[in-house]
């Protein structure tokens, strides 16, 4: 589904990703771990198409299409979803209408008729239970006045409604207490299926107690320096990153 080869990315002429390789197949969950500043959010933003990131070398292939130069909204319609590390508050823009516009923009793109108000509301009612988000939040401005945990749950709620093919969750677990973490994890687990791939960006292995990944990668200084299975995350928690770094340097 996703095939990243030798990806080099600069921000403000500073190289952040320095030859990153990653392959994710449909149905898989990949965890990307790494210390702060290693380039995890940069990777997430590049996949979602944020401006200001220049690909200087390498390629990103998604479902046989070259992602570079594709507008963020087109990526979203193609099935890419980014759950933001810091979801922005948008005063004056209604949460639920934004989501309806999003759903219908996607449907139009794939040639399906738009959902009417009732159909959309039924969809919302079904999905909102998944993340136990208070319904009254839905009719507020996007993320405005939401607690940190509510913002993260709102991201997963949107993911549930939009049913992406490739979801990138950027530190959705940070700042969550254990109950909220479980709710988010259950939500994500219920969205796992054969056709969907999920990239979990995190720097705590505790999320992986609840969402068991197929692969774990260590991102350091703009490169994936080690890949493994679930045990790798446990070992990272126990021993930190230094041993991976020296292993990679050797």
């Amino acid at each position: 589904m996703l095939n990243i080869k030798n990806l080099h990315v600069t921000v403000d002429d500073k190289e952040i990703l320095k030859g990153l390789d990653l392959t994710v197949n449909a149905g898989e969950v990949h965890a990307i771990m790494g210390p702060n500043g290693s380039g995890k959010s940069t990777l997430a933003n590049v996949l979602a198409g944020r401006e200001g990131y220049t690909i200087t070398k390498g390629s990103i292939d998604y479902e046989g299409k070259d992602l570079s130069g594709m507008a963020p909204e087109v990526r979203a319609r193609e099935g890419i979803f980014l759950a933001f590390q810091y979801p922005v508050e948008i005063p004056g823009v209604n949460n639920i209408y934004m989501l309806k516009a999003a759903v219908n923009a996607k449907r139009e793109y794939i040639g399906e008729p738009p959902l009417d108000a009732v159909e959309f509301l039924n969809l919302v009612k079904e999905k909102v239970k998944l993340v136990k988000l208070k319904e009254e939040l839905l009719n507020r401005s996007v993320n405005e006045g939401f607690s940190g945990g509510e913002k993260k749950r709102n991201e997963i709620f949107q993911m549930a409604v939009l049913e992406p093919r490739l979801a990138i969750l950027d530190e959705t677990d940070s700042g969550l207490d254990i109950d909220a973490l479980k709710i988010v994890a259950e939500g994500v687990n219920s969205l796992r299926n054969r056709d969907r791939a999920i990239i979990l960006v995190t720097h705590y292995q505790r999320l992986l107690n609840y969402i068991v990944p197929d692969q774990v990668h260590v991102l350091f200084d703009g490169r994936i320096i080690k890949s493994g299975h679930r045990e790798l995350a446990l070992k990272l928690e126990e021993k930190g990153y230094d041993w991976v770094k020296s292993e990679a340097a050797a």
Binding site: A48, G49, R50, E51, A71, P72, E73, R75, A76, R77, F81, L82, F84, P87, V88, I90, P91, G92, V93, M98, L99, A101, A102, A105, K106, Y109, S141, V142, Q158, L162
Partner: peptide, 26 residues
């Protein structure tokens, strides 16, 4: 706001529409 603009676009909303939405919200 570039962050708001990107957020809306990442939710499949056209750039021009997103700009209009944010302008109106202001």
């Amino acid at each position: 706001d570039q962050d708001m603009l990107f957020y809306l676009r990442s939710r499949a909303i056209d750039e021009e529409t997103a700009r209009s939405i944010l302008t109106y919200a202001f």
